[in-house]
């Protein structure tokens, strides 16, 4: 019984990590939009290249935050959750 429970938990951890990384779509679209707009801005006013680029990098970094939350959740699910869940389940089995 304990083995089946362990297998289910480990499988769900891996599945959850994969599902969590779907969140990567959001920042990708957002950053692509930001870069496209800043390219347009540089095309219109080439002399403002420096300021536009640094502002764009700041915006991209902030837009990237949600993707990084997903990454941290996925890393926790892969590397941390299996260990602690295994400990919990083996304690329950005793």
């Amino acid at each position: 019984m304990t083995e089946i429970a362990l297998a289910i938990v480990l499988g769900c951890c891996a599945l959850g990590a994969g599902i969590a990384m779907i969140a990567g779509i959001g920042p990708a679209i957002g950053e692509g939009y930001a870069v496209a707009k800043s390219c347009e801005a540089i095309g219109r006013q080439p002399e403002s290249r420096g300021e536009v680029t640094s502002t764009m990098i700041m915006g991209c970094a902030i837009a990237e935050t949600t993707g990084l939350y997903a990454l941290v959740v996925a890393i926790l699910l892969i590397f941390v959750a299996p260990g602690s869940m295994t400990a919990v389940i083996t304690n329950l089995g005793k």
């Binding site: 970094a61 990237e64 935050t65 990084l68 939350y69 990454l71 941290v72 890393i75």
Partner: peptide, 13 residues
């Protein structure tokens, strides 16, 4: 939280 995760997540990834 977001400042810590942003820096850590980028380097760790």
């Amino acid at each position: 939280i977001s400042m810590a995760f942003r820096h850590y997540g980028n380097v760790m990834s």
